[in-house]
Design a protein around this nucleic acid. Structure first.
Length: 667
RNA sequence: AGCGGGGUAGGGUAGUCAGGAAAUCCCGACGGGCUCAUAACCCGUAGAUCCAUGGUUCGAAUCCAUGCCCCGCUACCA
């Protein structure tokens, strides 16, 4: 049921501060399959994407790598563009959000929102680091969530309640770079009146199509909307109109890339971008499950507020696991597309097949090298590749090609089988379930194998050459249908198969409907191997690379291991006052202390501070004591605690800034 | 804590909205057959207390209640 209006398909923009990994492809490959399938149904979709180039992480990373943000972005932009091309992901246009068109479109939309009364200024208190001399936007701040009290990042309560935090809301803010306690300074910022769109969004989400994970999630959020601060104190980004010291928040200009890339594509092709963004059209966004909020709430509101066409579908993919573990760069559970996959000589189509056929689009997908090998060897090699191969091979060896039609046309049952597969393939796109597509075509190939086996052409050739020719024509018909139906998933491999079948033109241009058109007689070459088995050694190599990366990450993590708040809670730290202090005989480093921490009897503690502290000077001094330290005997004296000191050319005792009650707990 | 998505043989799934002979299909395992083909293909067998408990019903994977567990929003992220 392809609609007539123009169709635009987009993919969530890769953030240009890191390399492309298989997780990215979880979104981009299905989108490319979808676009190719639309073409096979006679439509002419435009497929745009581009690099997301702004935001604070890019600025931070560029500083660390001592390059400009522009250089950093350009490096990864080129990387993504090249990897997508290698993977057969053919965007009509791949842009970046730092282009002049993107800047201009963002400015224009922000101005439209201002003109329509959806943006207002408000003076807010912002965290400012006095040491680094800068405001601390978003993730530059750490502190305490004002709603639930958990530790949080500047833009979001990541440990606790999960609420989005507006700039200035966070409590006890600290600079994430240097740890300095932030000051608050007042500054005028600009807010998008998201709350004004509550009614609109509730209605809009009723009409929005796509995957249920996206829409259900968004419906809940639409009930509780707060205005968004859309400006930031940064140098890098799109200038907020009329304020040279502010840029717009990255989540404003990133989705606007969808429009500006359409404009750039249109300018290049002599097309009209407004057909897509100003009039009736079908706009389909493929995104990762982590940015549903932005695409179903914030983005439609912006478009509505500025007078643009609204998205019709939001398709959100599930997450990716690596060898059944949660995807994690820092823990080493990552497969880089270029160095780990393509550079090792694996064909891009095999990975496309894996991603499409493993599970539902909205569920978590596990990438395992072992499963990868099994799927390729058993499904693509044994079932599909072998069917095409045995068919073409037999036709070539016995007839020199596709035999002439002698009696009737293609068998009714063969046409039925192809028609069934075709119906399943086309309907799989209504629900964005790509696994149903690959299952249907694999079932057709399996059906073909059974057909071939039951007809025994190798026997027929000896007794009834004409009957045998008819069987082969049927099998070749099925092979051609497979090539067409599976082209969206395995574009280059199916083109190869198309060539082996001696068909005219390119399989890329064939329509799904051509799958049931009767195949024509022609000479064929001896077929080559379409899918080769993947050897165990190859998989072992890939697994070894992964596990070495995981091990390296583990040892790195052990060196500078992070602790959780509950780890800290295991320490019972208390403030106490030294009542008595005396040297320990036989030691020039140790002192015996008696410390009052509010208990009935003072604690006896041995401290290695004699070189820097005279025992006579200590009584009356407050110290910090680890009160639940396992007791130990030093020089025959029992120590029931440990006094904390900074270690700088000897011990420097820690004590409270102002005197506190003995026994006060330190958190 | 909240909200969303899940839990069906070793893995992946169908079925759940509109309840009906203890359950679909693919891969894997096992056995047999065949031989045109890349030791492939075909046929057959085993394997599931349908997360748990309670309820509604003549009948529950499916409906209701309660609970448990996993995942996402929520480092590094598509």
């Amino acid at each position: 049921m392809p609609p007539k209006e123009p169709v635009l398909v987009t993919c969530g923009l890769p953030y240009a501060n890191g390399k492309c990994h298989i997780g990215h492809l979880r979104t981009y490959v299905p989108a490319d399959i979808f676009v190719r399938a639309l073409r096979k149904q006679g439509q002419n979709p435009v497929f745009v994407c581009g690099s997301d180039t702004h935001g604070t992480p890019i600025v931070v990373n560029a500083e660390e790598e001592k390059v400009t943000p522009k250089e950093l972005v350009s490096k990864y932009h080129n990387h993504f563009e090249q990897v997508f091309k290698s993977m057969g992901i053919n965007f009509s246009f791949y842009g970046n959000t730092d282009s002049p068109t993107s800047h201009a479109r963002t400015t224009s939309i922000v101005e439209a929102l201002i003109a329509n009364g959806y943006v207002y200024p408000k003076t807010i208190r912002l965290a400012y680091c006095p040491k680094d001399k800068r405001f601390l936007p978003d993730r530059f701040v750490e502190g305490i969530c004002p709603y639930c009290g958990a530790s949080a990042r500047g833009d979001e309560c990541d440990q606790g309640c999960g609420k989005h935090l507006e700039p200035g809301e966070i409590k006890s803010a600290k600079c994430r770079i240097c740890g300095t306690t932030a000051e608050y300074r007042e500054q005028e910022h600009f807010f998008f009146r998201l709350s004004a769109f509550a009614g609109f969004l509730v209605d809009y989400l009723e009409t929005l199509k796509g995957t249920p994970n996206a829409i259900n999630y968004a419906k809940e959020w639409a009930k509780d909307l707060r205005d968004w601060c859309i400006t930031r104190n940064l140098e890098w980004g799109v200038r907020f109109p009329g304020h040279d010291d502010l840029v717009v928040y990255v989540w404003v200009d990133a989705p606007i890339g969808y429009i500006s890339f359409t404009e750039e594509w249109a300018a290049w092709q002599g097309e009209d971008w407004e057909k897509y963004w100003r009039r009736d059209s079908r706009i389909v966004h493929f995104i990762g499950g982590d940015i549903i909020y932005h695409h179903c709430i914030f983005w439609p509101a912006m478009l509505q507020g500025a007078g643009y066409t609204l998205p019709s579908d939001v398709v959100a993919s599930g997450m990716l696991k690596i060898e059944d573990k949660k995807f994690s760069k820092s823990r080493g559970y990552v497969v880089w597309v270029d160095e780990d996959y393509l550079a090792k000589g694996f064909h891009p189509d095999l990975l496309r097949y894996y991603l499409a056929s493993y599970t539902s689009h909205t569920k978590d997908l596990n990438f395992s090298w072992k499963v990868f090998q099994e799927k390729v060897n058993n499904e693509l090699v044994a079932v599909l590749g072998n069917f095409i191969h045995r068919t073409v091979h037999f036709a070539h060896a016995n007839f020199g090609g596709i035999p002439e039609r002698t009696g009737g046309g293609i068998d009714g049952e063969v046409i039925d089988a192809i028609t069934r597969a075709k119906a399943e393939v086309t309907s799989s796109f209504d629900e964005y379930e790509f696994k149903r597509l690959t299952d249907a075509v694999l079932a057709l190939a399996a059906w073909g194998n059974t057909y071939f086996q039951s007809k025994e052409p190798w026997q027929l050739i000896k007794k009834d050459r004409e009957q045998c020719a008819a069987v082969l024509r049927n099998c070749l018909q099925i092979s051609g249908a497979i090539a067409i139906l599976l082209e969206p998933v395995l574009p280059s491999k199916m083109e190869e198969a198309w060539g082996m079948l001696g068909q005219d033109g390119s399989v890329h241009d064939a329509l799904f409907d051509d799958a049931v058109k009767e195949i024509k007689s022609r000479a064929l070459e001896k077929p080559s191997v379409l899918f080769a088995k993947i050897e165990d050694s190859k998989i072992a190599e890939a697994e070894a690379l992964l596990s070495s990366r995981v091990k390296a990450a583990e040892s790195k993590a052990n060196k500078a291991s992070m602790i959780a708040p509950e780890d800290l809670a295991r320490l019972d730290l208390r403030v106490g006052t030294v009542i008595k202090a005396e040297p320990i005989k036989g030691s020039d480093k140790l002192l015996r202390l008696e410390v009052d921490i509010g208990e009935a009897v003072p604690r006896q503690v041995v401290a290695g501070i004699a070189k820097t502290h005279a025992s006579s000077a200590l009584p009356g001094t407050q110290v910090v004591l680890v009160a639940n330290m396992k007791p130990a005997k030093l020089f025959g004296v029992e120590s029931r605690g440990m006094v904390l000191a900074a270690d700088e050319n000897g011990a420097v005792l820690l004590n409270p800034q102002t005197p506190v009650k003995n026994g006060t707990k330190i958190k």
